[in-house]
Design a protein around this nucleic acid. Sequence first.
DNA 1: CTACAAGCTCAACTTAACTTGAGGTCAAGC
DNA 2: GCTTGACCTCAAGTTAAGTTGAGCTTGTAG
Lengths: 147, 147
Amino acid sequence: MAPVTELTVGQVAMRSGVAVSALHFYETRGLIRSHRTSGNQRRYGRDVLRRVAIIKVAQEVGISLAEIGEALASLPEGRTPTRDDWGLLSTAWRDALDHKIAQLKKLRDGLIDCIGCGCMSIDKCPLRNKGDRLAKEGTGARRLVAT
Amino acid sequence: MAPVTELTVGQVAMRSGVAVSALHFYETRGLIRSHRTSGNQRRYGRDVLRRVAIIKVAQEVGISLAEIGEALASLPEGRTPTRDDWGLLSTAWRDALDHKIAQLKKLRDGLIDCIGCGCMSIDKCPLRNKGDRLAKEGTGARRLVAT
DNA sequence: CTACAAGCTCAACTTAACTTGAGGTCAAGC
DNA sequence: GCTTGACCTCAAGTTAAGTTGAGCTTGTAG
């Protein structure tokens, strides 16, 4: 096939929109991988672009790097991930997103009913002590960052 | 009316479910206020319970303390907020939540279409460079924290 | 009136996710 | 063959949102 152009950090940074320092950082966290040239410089397969894109998208919906790392770890280390490999990830995260969306809706509606009603002492407000509070979410993203 | 029982930090902490240290912290950030006894101890009006409840709920949906602070600052400083005062807040945040929910949905759906499709280089993927990226959200919450 | 739980202040520590800087190397153009 | 921009490593700094601890004061119950 085409001679698999390898990318430098700078190129990855440019194409992915993340800083070089962030790429270094992701690498220390095991989210992406590179091999080195004889001169010790990083070279990435094009693969990395998708990884980085996913990292960013996932972060935007609030999945922590640690969790993204876990998810990405489920991808095959030896070979380039197939569409099916990515599909698994997508499915897992879709569920998490569905969950999160549902919770936000509940909060939104609850907030409107609740905010002016005087019921917000922790022991009485349905919003505050539902038992299924966001805070308790075990699976999936615990943080929604949209910085 | 009833003789407005004032609350100590400990009582507020217990009733609101946040740590004393967090209450101190919120105070330094201007999110809540107290007056002091002759012995320099904090005393809170019952008002503070609702404030704290709202702080927590807002945080759970990802509004930063800074933004919560701004919102709360819109409440009247001199008097106990009326239902209408709180109503304004509620409305503002409902909009932010609606927005956020919509974005999450878009991301969820986009992710599914996109994640396995090879389109994720920053310059081509609809998810990554829509112009209305989460990252750019000016109004309302920039962070969704569901710790 | 004396314990001792609660409070107080202030400084330092924590985690996540990076960024910045210092000091040194690599590679491509002229 | 040298200059310049891209890289490299490693340490330290940054922000948010608190927590922890030390050392000292209050207030309440017996």
